[in-house]
Design a protein around this nucleic acid. Structure first.
Length: 882
RNA sequence: GGGCGCAUAGCUCAGGGGUAGAGCGCCGGUCUUACAAACCGGAGGUCGUUGGUUCGAAACCAACUGCGCCCA
């Protein structure tokens, strides 16, 4: 199928009009070679030393185990559009690519692979296992990078980074040491979210809550003491019962002891304000080692912390339940209590919030353990302030409240993970209890008894450094100097807490020496929504509505997918997407293709436009509209309104340029001579601008068309069109063409009502054309298929539009009824308008209080209605007379 | 339980103090020499409910109902 490949994709002689583009755009034939040529020519690379203004966006690093899903495709489309436009505008544009190492996910993948061979990571040992992970990464990781090429992502491939590479690991160690020395990192025993499957701690935000069906069991500990719980097995670890200090019902119990069933232990009844007296009996069991709230109560009252479960979720408390899994122990404990007659009530099912590991969905177990933490207080305060004082802007602004709600009430961040894949905590413990934090250039302590901490850091810890670690930090590299702070961060609102907050905290902290203005990681946070299915439902594999973007790219082309996503991108709002819409975008690309094809066949060329006075009204109209659209598109881009920018371009390209200008252009093109030459230049001018404007969202098709049209090297490095509304704005031409369009549409309606086939030519006489500012009779006849009358002309039907009368020769076959229906309908509409205008103008309050311009508008509407009514009534009369 | 957001055409969404727009879908007609992935014409909405502000509300305010999200 090589002959169907447009020769524009090869380098020789682009722009010669005689070369035939195929009648249908075939994305599959052009995308891959076009992309590879862009990369070869280095268009996406950036120069650290240029004096162009910087424009840098770092990729939200995809997971090394992941593949491209629609969420990526969406985000990447938006970033790529911003980057490409800025590059065309003359910025030094850099889109930094890379991936994160996804500690838990990656370790899981490799462990699963090993398990197939019956090997566990413990069989291999730490070092060999990590080696295996690296091998896996080289072999199977980063599938997404190839898929990004398919999408057309203009990233600077030579700068690709990975959170586990040497430079970024050094950045991690550097900041750990600094935070440690500043006492912003500490080690403490707390209740953490423990995943019994992944065998690691999770931070709060790695836990997803859902309302699950469980049970609420009320247990009688003694005659006076009844507590309710959804996790009955934890009662084995109770070390107190608590009531509210002001609860009159239980004053007499405070300070007494009660025997804990099944264990025989005596535990105190204490008073704590945390207890909600209105919930259940108003008494709660307190299990400090297995519940975060109970942990706090336990600390306030100095209660023992009794751990009754191991890291697999298996009961360790001695007794009959020892060795049972937590979910086996639960009914077993309830059964044992029931046997003793201690079950007061059981509510089942009982809907309550349950935390799940965001990676493997296992129910999280609150667990007391020794972990490393970031003291976020001052860091989060700084992150909040940066937005509060305007150094960092959040788009859309309505998302700010979400931001403040989070950073102003942030809990300390648990950063240690009990994994092997990740950045190992650079802390060493000595034989005599010494603790040494080792910086990147320090020698770790060696000798008998010294040991490094076993844990690794949360993946987000390294991702938090991404905006500057990828540019070379902590070294003072030219890249860092040029591109930090980044200009924009584009990401989903769901990740504001996960990632953005962390980048803000670490960016501001690590780069504080830059001064407040340049410490920030980025100037703007542009938030987008989630991609949803065509009915607005969340996409998920389990629900079966997930879509593989690659399938759609195969079927409709990357540009079609990109355009659909960008066109749906209202700031911070979710984007529903369905195959129909991608198909529609494909059709749009094909429309552009064919419009350009027509223009090229007509000899369109890019050159200096003739002065305005030599241009026709349609010429001046389309130029006026073009530059108005350009100005609009610019304004929308500056405000991250991708949907509106795309809509404006779609509307201009299809409804104005293709449907009207191109059709109008056929008349002068057929005429030949100066008129045709002039039209070729206007066609070339409009297409040149339009294709450049569309390039950021539909890079492939515009590349082929634009290089063919202009003969230039690549639209990637073309300049962004500058809106010149002053030079081209032409209100007279605009209203003239509007009137012409109205005339044409009215004639077409008439033809349609009369049952004339669209292509069927009939003779007609046009009178009163002098009254139409854009009196282009030849164009009007061409658009309405009306021949000039010859000797045998007999008028058998007529209509009037404005001051124009159209007499048609329908050879007697006039459908009077259809005409009457239409006229009656129009008349009713005008009468209604008249009535409404009269009502307003008869309202003295309206006349007195409404602005003059508004009153004037209603008067004008009334006048139009009156004239139209007269016209329609006259036509109806004439019809009746026939 | 706390907070936030959304209710506009069959579907998905824009809009925004002067009585409504788009895309897709739908109906009728066309292979009219760029494009049937197209062209021409058409139908379709008391802008969730109830109050209030205003000369005027779909738009602003309040309550209610329904849906969604985040946090506990």
């Amino acid at each position: 199928m090589t002959e169907s490949t447009p020769s524009a994709t090869s380098n020789e002689s682009p722009g010669s009009a005689e070369q035939a583009l195929p009648t249908v755009y075939d994305p599959g034939a052009v995308e891959a070679p076009v992309y590879e040529r862009w990369v070869e020519r280095g268009y996406f690379e950036a120069d650290d030393t240029s004096d162009k203004p910087p424009f840098c966006i770092v990729i939200p690093p995809p997971n090394v185990t992941g593949s491209l899903h629609l969420g990526h495709a969406f985000e990447h489309t938006l970033i790529d559009a911003l980057i490409r436009r800025r590059r065309m505008q003359g910025y030094e544009a850099l889109w930094m690519p890379g991936m994160d190492h996804a500690g838990i996910a990656t370790q899981n993948v490799v462990e699963r692979e090993l398990a197939k061979e019956g090997v566990s990571r413990h069989d291999l040992g730490r070092e060999a296992f990590v080696e295996k992970v690296w091998e896996w990464k080289e072999r199977s990781g980063g599938m997404i990078l190839g898929q990004m090429r398919r999408l057309g992502d203009g990233v600077a491939w030579s700068r690709e980074r990975f959170t586990m590479d040497d430079g970024l690991s050094r950045a991690v160690q550097t900041i750990f040491k600094r935070l440690y020395d500043d006492e912003l990192i500490y080690r403490a025993e707390r209740i953490i979210n423990w995943c019994v499957r992944c065998h690691t701690a999770l931070s709060d935000i790695e836990v997803e809550h859902s309302d699950d069906e469980g049970e609420l069991i009320s247990i009688r500990y003694s005659d006076d003491v009844v507590v309710a719980t959804t996790r009955a097995e934890t009662m084995l670890g109770d070390t107190a019962v608590a009531v509210h200090p002001d609860d009159e019902r239980y004053q007499h119990l405070i300070g007494t002891e009660v025997e804990l069933p099944l264990t025989g232990r005596k535990i105190p009844v204490i008073a704590d304000a945390h207890v909600d007296p209105s919930f259940g009996s108003g008494m709660v069991k307190v299990t400090p080692a297995h519940d975060p709230n109970d942990f706090e109560i336990g600390r306030r009252h100095d209660l023992p912390q009794l751990t009754i479960m191991d890291e697999r979720g298996v009961i360790t408390a001695s007794g009959p339940f020892e060795g049972l899994d937590r979910f086996e122990a639960r009914p077993a404990v309830v059964a044992a209590l029931r046997e003793q007659g201690r079950i007061v009530s059981e509510k089942r099912p009982y809907l309550h919030a349950v935390g799940h590991c965001s990676r493997c969905k296992t129910v999280v177990e609150p667990r007391l353990s020794l972990q490393w933490w970031v003291r976020v207080g001052p860091l989060a305060k700084a992150a909040g302030d940066a937005v509060r004082d305007g150094r960092v802007a959040i788009h859309p602004k309505s998302m700010e409240s979400r931001w403040f709600g989070w950073v102003d009430d942030m809990h300390d961040w648990c950063i240690s993970r009990q994994l092997w894949w990740g950045h190992r905590i650079p802390v060493w413990y000595g034989p005599d209890g010494e603790v040494v934090c080792v910086g990147p250039d320090d020698e770790p302590p060696s000798g008998e008894g010294w040991q490094q901490d076993e844990d690794v850091l949360d993946t987000w810890f390294s991702s938090a450094l991404w905006p500057f670690s990828t540019l070379g930090w902590p070294d003072e590299t030219p890249a860092l100097a040029k591109f930090y702070p980044n200009q924009v961060l584009v990401t989903g609102y769901d990740i504001l807490f996960f990632w953005v907050a962390r980048m803000m905290m670490f960016g501001l902290y690590a780069n504080a020496d830059n001064g407040p203005e340049r410490a920030i990681p980025f100037h703007t946070i542009a938030l987008h929504g989630m991609v949803r299915d065509k009915h607005g439902k969340k996409m998920s594999k389990s629900f079966g509505n997930a879509v593989d973007p690659l399938e759609w790219m195969d079927a409709y082309g990357s540009d079609a997918l990109r355009f659909t996503l960008a066109r749906g991108a209202n700031p911070g709002v979710d984007v529903p997407i369905g195959e129909d819409w991608v198909q529609a975008s494909r059709n749009f690309c094909n429309k552009l293709w064919n419009a350009t094809r027509f223009a090229l066949m007509s000899g369109a060329k890019v050159g200096e436009l003739p002065p305005a006075e030599q241009l026709s009204a349609p010429d001046r109209w389309i130029l006026s509209r073009l530059h108005a659209t350009l100005a609009e598109v610019d304004a929308f881009y500056e405000d991250y309104q991708f949907a509106k920018a795309c809509d404006a371009l779609y509307h201009f390209a299809w409804d104005e340029f293709c449907d009207w200008y191109v059709e109008l252009a056929k008349t002068p093109l057929n005429e030949g001579g100066d008129a045709a030459e002039r039209t070729r230049l206007v066609l070339g001018h409009v297409l040149d601008h339009l294709l450049r404007m569309l390039h950021p969202v539909t890079p492939f098709v515009t590349e082929v068309l634009w290089t063919t049209l202009t003969g230039d090297e690549s639209v990637v490095v073309a300049t962004w069109p500058v809106a010149d509304a002053d030079a081209h704005s032409d209100a007279v031409a605009e209203s003239g063409v509007e009137e012409l369009k109205r005339l044409v549409t009215e004639i077409r309606r008439f033809r349609s009502d009369q049952g004339l086939k669209p292509g069927q030519r009939v003779a007609a006489r046009l009178d009163g054309m002098a009254g139409v500012p854009a009196a282009h009779e030849a164009e009007i006849r061409s658009l309405t298929r009306l021949n000039t009358p010859d000797e045998g002309f007999t008028s058998s039907a007529s209509l009037t539009v404005g001051g124009v009368t159209i007499e048609l020769d329908l050879s007697g076959a006039v459908d009077v009824e259809a005409e009457r229906k239409r006229l009656t309908k129009d008349l009713a509409a005008e009468r209604k308008a008249l009535e409404q205008s009269d009502r307003k103008l008869g309202n003295e309050q309206f006349l007195a209080k409404a602005p003059e311009a508004e009153v004037e508008k209603v008067r004008a509407r009334r006048a139009t209605a009156e004239a139209e009514i007269a016209r329609l009534e006259a036509q109806l009369d004439r019809l009746a007379a026939r």
